[in-house]
């Protein structure tokens, strides 16, 4: 993917740049808001990573300007301002995701992965499949049923949503905060181990003894759903 990073803090910028290059992306990085805005409007990037507080032109203004000129490149906002109202302001300005500093590199990479694959604009609404299938597990969103092979799996509503989210992003690393935002749709400071308990309950229903496990724990990061155990 071709990415642009606009971040005034040199350490963060270089660190992210290096990490993204290592992950196989093509990266441009600048430290000034105005330069960032000029680049973002003139070059075809697939994803923008913007710091919120920038010299000359701040991050939110860049997003608003881009959206006003119909450029819908996905934008991930980085910010030290981590409260709900800051986050709402960031997403309202047209940002697609909001990550609070300090962030774990794995969290950033996971979010970039998801954002890069997300269908944009009008395509997004129509491309939601009614049927999800990963390996031998099948989820019917309309009938709200789940089967693994011949076995029917009974799930609580939240477990169903959790599984749906994992299947939709199968193969990708999903962090706990992504699950919180994606499944529960609240921005808050959770008790850290709650998500693990939910996942462990779901795992008990999805992965039975003798079946190849589908829910994998990525240590220190989150989870991955799928047949391959990396």
């Amino acid at each position: 993917m071709r990415l642009l990073i606009v971040e005034d803090d040199r350490h963060t910028r270089e660190f992210v740049e290096r990490a993204l290059r290592e992950a196989g992306h093509t990266v441009d990085a600048v430290g000034d808001g105005r330069q960032g805005l000029i680049l973002a409007t003139s070059e075809p990037f697939e994803l923008l990573i913007l710091d919120r507080m920038l010299p000359n032109v701040d991050g939110l203004t860049i997003v608003r300007t881009l959206r006003a000129s119909n450029i819908d490149t996905p934008v991930l906002i980085l910010s030290a301002l981590g409260d709900v109202d800051d986050r709402v302001a960031g997403l309202r300005a047209g940002g697609d995701d909001y990550l609070v500093k300090p962030f774990a590199l794995s969290e950033l990479l996971a979010r970039i992965d998801v954002l890069g694959r997300r269908p944009r604009g009008a395509a997004a609404a129509s491309s939601e499949p009614m049927h999800l299938r990963v390996a031998d597990i099948e989820l019917d969103r309309l009938k709200r049923t789940v089967r693994r092979g011949a076995r029917k799996i009974d799930l609580q509503p939240k477990e169903f949503q959790l599984l749906e989210y994992l299947m939709r992003h199968s193969g990708q690393v999903i962090t706990r905060t992504m699950l919180l935002e994606g499944v529960w749709d609240y921005h808050f400071d959770p008790k850290t181990n709650v998500i693990d308990v939910h996942i462990s309950n779901l795992r008990g229903k999805v992965d039975h003894a003798g079946e190849p496990p589908l829910i994998h724990t990525v240590r220190g990061v989150g989870y991955r759903f799928g047949i391959d155990a990396a």
């Binding site: 803090d9 350490h11 963060t12 660190f15 507080m53 030290a80 301002l81 981590g82 500093k101 300090p102 962030f103 774990a104 590199l105 794995s106 220190g220």
Partner: peptide, 20 residues
């Protein structure tokens, strides 16, 4: 905001190092 910025930066570095 600045406090958050200033205090988080060293924590950020620490977390990054732990991760690597």
């Amino acid at each position: 905001g600045h406090l958050a910025h200033d205090l988080r930066r060293p924590l950020q570095g620490l977390k990054r190092r732990l991760e690597s």
